[in-house]
Computed example of a mutant assay.
Amino acid sequence: MDSDRTFRRATTLDELDAITGFSTDEGQRIGRAYRPDPSDIFISPYAKCGTTWMQQVVHGLRSGGSMAFDEITEVVPWLELAHDMGVDVNAPQVAAPRAFKSHLGWDEIPKGGRYIVVFRDPVDAMISLYRFFEGWWFEAGAISVDDFAAYYLRRGEDYWAHAASWLRQRGREDVLLVTFEEMKRNLPGVVDRVAAFMGGYDGATRAVATEQAGFAFMKRHGGQFDDHLVREARDAACGLPPGGAATKVASGKSGAEISDDIRRRFDDRWQEVMEREFGLPTYSALDQALQGR
């Protein structure tokens, strides 16, 4: 019985690793079995690489700037988690084209739709995930950034495999690859690219979508981007107490402070995977290669 269960946040990496139940096997199966229409949009970056930001861009374009949602996942469902949140992935959506959030790599995601992936510097993605989990999945101050970084590096389902799976699809007409950093540098240009990828929208619609995907606007409406519906639906299943804090609209700052050893290990992993296969020696080289493409 839940009344007899102890709900607590992790205080060690072992306890963090032991948290299960966020999604069910059945929910994963149903999401992955979804059969897309050719116009469906899947937004599938790795965790903390700009998923929510791109959801807002896509929804702003397709809806003309509607903010009539409690939380963005309500109108752009999370494919792998929808069933566990009581959402039917086959149900009509509030606007067209249909759009889904995902964190799946190319090899796992349902085929037949259109796909937008945002890449982000892996150190910054890791720091963002640390801050996102702190106070929600683990107690604030209980796990150091460097210890979390080492945990991030050894995870089986990792950033680099996800990134490589999508970079192999570069050049496909049904895949759009952008970077978080380009969105920061040139949001109007990225919105234009997304609009063209989705079939084209007039200048007024693109301007509204750009304004509503800006940091200031999303910060003012932070409660609509904070995953509170996800927490309400899944915290108890994970053994987490209610009331955890998590924010999706942070500063977006890069270059976070970590030890030289951890930074070297991130660089080594990048070179082992991304330089070896794609000839990209650094993340900056990837960012440069994808500008305006």
Rank of each mutant, 00 (worst) to 15 (best):
R9G: 10
E157I: 13
I262Y: 05
A204H: 05
N90R: 12
K101L: 06
K184G: 00
M67E: 13
T24L: 07
T20M: 12
R172G: 07
D146Y: 10
L79F: 08
V145M: 12
N186H: 06
Y130N: 09
F266T: 05
M183Q: 03
G255K: 06
T179D: 02
Q169S: 03
S254T: 10
D17K: 15
L81H: 14
H221F: 05
R114A: 10
Q56L: 06
G244I: 03
A82P: 14
A142H: 12
L286S: 02
I72Y: 11
T205V: 13
L286E: 03
E277R: 01
A96F: 00
Q271M: 06
L61D: 12
T24A: 12
V117P: 00
N90I: 07
A207L: 00
M54K: 03
D37Q: 12
A150Q: 13
S66Q: 09
A195H: 04
G199F: 01
A140R: 14
T24Y: 07
L167D: 03
F7H: 11
I127V: 15
A161E: 14
L187T: 00
G171Y: 09
Y46L: 11
I43R: 03
F119D: 02
V208R: 11
D146K: 06
G244F: 01
G171W: 07
A91K: 11
G171A: 04
E74I: 02
K248A: 14
K219Q: 12
T12E: 13
E182Y: 01
K184N: 04
P281C: 00
S251H: 04
A209Q: 01
D267P: 07
M274T: 04
H162M: 08
H221Q: 10
I258W: 00
H103G: 01
P281L: 02
A233G: 11
R263H: 13
E71D: 15
Y34M: 12
L286I: 03
Q212D: 00
G252W: 05
E108D: 15
H83R: 10
G255I: 01
A207H: 00
F217M: 03
G243R: 10
V94K: 08
L286N: 02
M218G: 08
G222R: 15
L280Y: 01
F225A: 01
P38S: 08
F138K: 09
L229Q: 14
R154M: 07
A216V: 09
A10M: 09
W78L: 13
T11I: 12
